[in-house]
Design a protein around this nucleic acid. Structure first.
Length: 461
RNA sequence: GUGGUUGUAGCUCAGUUGGUUAGAGCGCCGGAUUGUGGUUCCGGAGGUCGCCGGUUCGAACCCGGUCUUCCACCCCA
């Protein structure tokens, strides 16, 4: 090997155990998506550049992986552009395709393209990788999976309630209790900006406010000032920094602050209804919290904003997020179709489950039974037995060559195989096979003509 | 995109002011054990010290570049 091979920054290989664990998460998420009535779709891994560009803000455009055109693309660039040596003007001419950055925008594109065949309200889910040209960190990759569920064409706040229930159902099923679902509403944020006279700086205001629990009140105010929000405006927003008490009390404080803002009061009413309904229906293991500082995510949210935090003590960014966007398909020409959805961050959920040791022990097992090989004649009999066991649905394998027992047993041990079958000359003569329980070290004989007893025992585990 | 950090055996890591032949634990392979793993004992293999260049009589060690890892920003699942 001249040089060690490598993979691009921020990408990963997944070995068998990791794939098994990832599939376990995906399977659980999909199960609940379907239980809630969502249907799967898939979209291409890359889209036309203009479908994606400009949808995630300036920052987002920078993080989109662009795909170089095929053929002699350079000669098609006009001389002025070419000699300008300006990446931002040349790039659009030589990269007409780009890797998908999330699943929401491609879904909006899908809805618009297929609007005449879709029955609204349309509930779809999608589990596919997305790519971002970001700098990798813990829990941040350049290729990662999103698991999205969205509803389009339904305005009812009951949808929001269902998504909270969906988060709760999935995380409870994964054994991840103690997650916090944070809820906010874009209308409340707009209302606040309006009340303090900073509508035009809404995004800067919310981005700074979002950092409150991370960098503290003083730093947030500094950032707001730096962004051009006046000191008097910030002073008016002071109640936000001292929000406390029960959810009802916090809502009251918001009502006081937003009494002059129509949109703000609408947002408070929406929060009120969602919180009240969820409380009435109850959650299994998650906590639902009102968090007026929650503002992250993309600018197309217009109503509810969700974010899920891992249980306390786990250092990890959000493991899920979502929200309501009243006019997402508008950018593709279809007006007045409301959407709301959530996303699960598979790769981060994986890291959290790993850290808390919550994966089922069975994930480590890829075989139920391994049959040892005693030679050519015995091997053939063994394959007959293995074939029969496979027919019963067991994951069974035959060691391919008749090397010494020690080596075969060691292999079984490494593979975490719970049962090893010995089928040698003496067993065949008796019409039996010997089963060794690897955990207990005990051996039992079964009749070759009656596999049921053994199969039942394995399946019980 | 900005600033920092990391890289030595398959893995986790030592390695003195720059100085002869780069070490350990775990793992791997073989044997003790030709029908019994996970424990024990004995033996063995395995390294362009991330890569490229520079300084030097001499570089794992100093300098520059580059790639990678992780971290803080930005932003985000």
């Amino acid at each position: 090997m001249a040089q060690k091979p490598s993979i691009p920054k921020g990408t990963r290989d997944f070995s068998p155990v990791e794939v098994a664990k990832r599939n376990h998460i995906i399977k659980t998420i999909k199960k609940h998506f379907e239980t809630f009535g969502f249907m799967p779709i898939e979209t291409p891994s890359f889209e036309n550049s203009d479908t994606l560009l400009g949808k995630y803000g300036e920052e987002g455009d920078r993080l989109i992986f662009k795909i170089l055109n095929s053929g002699d693309f350079i000669s098609k660039v006009d001389d002025v552009t070419y000699s300008s040596k300006n990446s931002s003007t040349i790039a659009p001419k030589i990269t007409e395709k780009a890797l998908r950055y999330d699943l929401t925008v491609p879904f909006a594109r899908y809805v618009v393209m297929h609007q005449n065949e879709i029955d609204f309200p349309f509930k779809r889910y999608q589990v596919q990788p997305v790519w971002r040209a970001d700098r990798p960190q813990k829990g941040r990759f350049r290729e990662f999976y999103q698991c999205d569920a969205d509803v389009v064409g339904a305005n009812s706040l009951l949808q929001e309630v269902e998504f909270v229930q969906l988060y709760d159902a999935v995380f409870t099923d994964l054994g991840l209790s103690g997650t916090t679902i944070k809820l906010n509403n874009r209308k409340v944020l707009s209302g606040i900006a309006e009340v303090i006279g900073a509508q035009h700086l809404l995004v800067d205001f919310t981005v700074a406010l979002d950092k409150l629990d991370k960098i503290g009140e003083e730093k947030v105010k500094e950032e707001m000032l730096a962004k051009g929000i006046s000191a008097t405006a910030i002073a008016k927003a002071q109640p936000l920094f001292n929000m406390q008490g029960s959810v009802a009390e916090q809502l009251d404080q918001l009502k006081d602050l937003l009494v002059t803002s129509e949109v703000g009061m609408k947002g408070v009413a929406e929060l009120d209804e969602i919180l009240e309904t969820v409380t009435e229906l109850g959650l299994k293991s998650a906590k639902l919290e009102l968090d007026v500082t929650l503002a992250r995510g993309l600018n197309y949210y217009t109503g509810a904003i969700f974010e899920v935090a891992a249980p306390e003590g786990v250092k990890m960014g959000s493991i899920g997020g979502g929200g309501r966007y009243d006019d997402l398909t508008g950018i593709f020409g279809l007006k007045d179709v409301s959407g709301v959805g959530i996303s699960f961050g598979l790769d981060r959920i994986y890291l959290v489950l790993e850290e808390l040791d919550l994966f089922p022990k069975a994930m480590e097992q890829s075989l139920d039974v391994l049959c040892l090989n005693f030679g050519q004649k015995e091997g053939r009999a063994a394959l007959r037995l293995v074939t029969a066991l496979r027919g019963h649905g067991l994951r069974a394998d035959l060691y391919p060559s008749s090397t010494k027992m020690q080596k075969q047993f060691k292999y079984a041990d490494k593979r975490n195989v719970p049962y090893v079958i010995l089928l040698g000359e003496s067993e065949i003569a008796q019409g039996e096979f010997t089963v060794k329980d690897m955990a207990k070290g005990e051996q039992t004989n079964y009749n070759l003509t009656d596999l049921e007893a053994f199969v039942t025992k394995v399946k019980q585990q």
